[in-house]
Design a protein around this nucleic acid. Sequence first.
DNA 1: CGCCGAGTTGAACTGAATCAAGAAACGTGG
DNA 2: CCACGTTTCTTGATTCAGTTCAACTCGGCG
Lengths: 193, 193
Amino acid sequence: MTIEEIVNKINETYSPLTLECQQELLSHSTLLSLKKGESLVREGQYSDKTYYIIKGAARAYYLKDGKDISDWFAFENEFISSIISFFTDKPSPHYLELLEDALLIELSRASIEKLSDKYHDFERLIRVIVTKTMLSQQERIASIQFYNAEQKYQNILAIRPDITQRVPLTDIASYLGISLETLSRIRNPKNRI
Amino acid sequence: MTIEEIVNKINETYSPLTLECQQELLSHSTLLSLKKGESLVREGQYSDKTYYIIKGAARAYYLKDGKDISDWFAFENEFISSIISFFTDKPSPHYLELLEDALLIELSRASIEKLSDKYHDFERLIRVIVTKTMLSQQERIASIQFYNAEQKYQNILAIRPDITQRVPLTDIASYLGISLETLSRIRNPKNRI
DNA sequence: CGCCGAGTTGAACTGAATCAAGAAACGTGG
DNA sequence: CCACGTTTCTTGATTCAGTTCAACTCGGCG
């Protein structure tokens, strides 16, 4: 995959950028190649970076009273960051780690601010990305409020059919707000009536 | 409250606009004065409007299998819309109604798009509003995942101490994803150990 | 081959829902 | 301004979905 193909992908998925803006975006981008299990952010750190996933998968999670609780998964052509830290400049409550070997683009808040100031179309790109994120969260909240454990699982499968191949069940369970045991029972067809 | 004061409030809470942009924003704005209980959007409607609350309070809710489930509250100096319909151009799953007599500014999607195209600073305003909304949802999801019924209630009280004066307990309960009875017991100090 | 983390299965427990009934507050018209 | 009906909230008893604890299985990897 060439750099051009990557930028095109962002253009068509989110919002188009002028060639000039694309150039400058690339000049601010850092390419990262990291292995499964490596971490991008730890709790308590100030993280002013956002990551675009070219290839691979990543996970944001909390450690709440020693319990690992997944908060977000991201895959190819998606963005991930420690959103609290990135947007509010506070220490991150999240850890960020890679679920698979990955190829990432790293962008700093300073770069994003600079590009947003200079290019209206970059400001729009950010607006579109944030809007999509907000709509995903909206869906997630609705899923939590309306559905029982099994329905929540079916829901995430509908949105991301490959999730069970790419994310450990433990992480899916904590993301759904159910215990690993319950998820295991849901998945076992013998437990059907 | 004059129109200038209202626009100033938006400028300082969200993101500043040039005078020219402010003027044009006002020319696209419709002022609405509505009574408690009136509805802005019903389920199934295509709603391409966003409302800014000058005075009063509003609520977005679902009717899921006949049950009324609150999804969002908005008060002075906040925005509310049927976000699914507004951003994805689908029929609204939400109802929107007023919890108090209210004074609102109504903006159409067409106006917002036009202003966003024309003015970089308006695009930024929208980006900032959406980002704030996203961060509230993030907090809400964390609150749902981490806390029990009582803690969720304490949480919303911390964020909005006046909510019990302005929103019926039924609506607060469904927003928190707990039953009205549980909320009532939580609020009764006799039930403390 | 044996260990270790991930997932499964079973049994007991529990926080909150549901069902049911009554009390308080609210507002509307006489 | 009061009476009455409606809505909102409270209280009690029972039930249940899902948790927790514990033991076990399986598959991959050093």
